[in-house]
Amino acid sequence: MNQNKIALIIGASSESIIAIKHAKALGLKVIAFDANPKAPGLKEADISYNIDIINPSNIIQTLSKENITLDIILPVPIGRYLITIGALNDYYNLNGFSYKMADICTDKLKFASALADNGGGLGSLRDIKFDIFDPNLNHNKLKFPLIIKPRFGSGSKDTMVISNLDELKNIAKNIKFTKMDFLIEEFIDGLEYGIDAVIINGEFHHILSRQKLLTTLPYRQAIGYISIDEIPSISSYIQNIITKLNIDNCLLHADIITKDNRAFIIELSTRPSGHYLSKFIEITTGINPTKEWINKSLNLPYNFKPKFRKNTIMRYFDFEGDWIAADFDLLKDSLGIIDYRCEINSTLPKVIDSSTIMDRGYAIIEANSKEECINNAHKLISNFKRIKR
């Protein structure tokens, strides 16, 4: 029934393959665009173009030359280039988020500014609200610890916690922080969560909440996620944010921090979660948000309501140096390892952001309780062996 329908992929990373395969299984022809000629999704698509995806007009011109009319843009976990998907949704009048929604969610300064002036407690807890980092700023106005992060981007790249004035002065010497837009604000030391959801007709529908395991300071990269029950106050808080910002018709990934029984938004994206979390979500809830969104967009039966909520943990491998992997076949039954991917085959750098951890692999473990999940993950990690040089 879908043989003549066209699906578009913007950003053909390995994490686009889930969407590509599901679309092709439904009979859609998939067209992929990516600036990287080695992007794995380009090989999986029916038609591929090696084109920079930052400019939607290039994509529109390419499709027009081939007389191609789109039916759906497949959901993929990308960063700032969500604005390209939004622009194409607008141009082709497709179901999904708009350019305006994508722009405000991928520009941290616009996002924080939109929430800070509402007076309803949706903005930042911090004394210093988001502002452009100026190496010459008045140090008397600062309250440590601070966090510095790029205005655009995701995956904790170039995000650091600064504990004192000396550290700030050292950061200011780095030419990178003077040539690019960086933001600075007061740091909150609280529990962090990842939230997976869908927004339909302006309503927030919770799929999964994940408590984060993080690197030690000064970095804030997630090295693991533990499934937890929905926290109603967080869901209500996110509903207020999407209502305020008119976020609608999209899958949603949000990062939240809680302190003193209050929730504060870190980041919100109009996309599915990345870093292989789609598999974790499906194992934990029985729902694959990407597949369900494609079904919904094609007017096929869909369901975003979790079928169950298992006690699971997803643990990445945050080693530094040279390591020999654990014997997963030997351990999987005793530790409840449901799924894993391990590609540790070289000297590993220190984990500071997603680019330094995500290609190593992960293990998804199911157990009878949150505590048992954590203990089993520790046991797995302890079975990796360090090579002494």
Rank of each mutant, 00 (worst) to 15 (best):
A7R: 03
R210D: 09
V161N: 00
A102W: 04
H205M: 12
N50I: 13
Y91S: 06
N246F: 11
A116D: 15
G153Y: 11
I162K: 07
I162C: 03
D318M: 05
R126A: 10
P218F: 12
A19Y: 07
H205Y: 12
L115Q: 03
N311H: 15
L146A: 00
H378C: 14
V198F: 10
H22Q: 11
P218M: 12
G286K: 01
I148L: 10
E267G: 04
D333C: 08
I188S: 04
K24L: 05
N164S: 11
R126H: 08
I231Y: 03
R341K: 15
S156G: 09
F144T: 00
N376V: 09
N240M: 14
D131M: 13
I171A: 02
F97V: 07
P145C: 10
S273K: 01
F144C: 06
E343G: 07
D107T: 10
D71M: 02
I85L: 02
L300R: 07
S64C: 06
N4Y: 11
N240K: 15
K350R: 15
I53L: 06
S227E: 07
F97A: 01
N36L: 06
K143I: 12
N118T: 14
F144S: 04
E372D: 14
I132P: 03
H206P: 02
L137W: 10
E267H: 05
T285D: 08
A363D: 01
I195N: 07
C105A: 13
N93P: 05
F177T: 06
F111T: 02
N246G: 09
N368D: 15
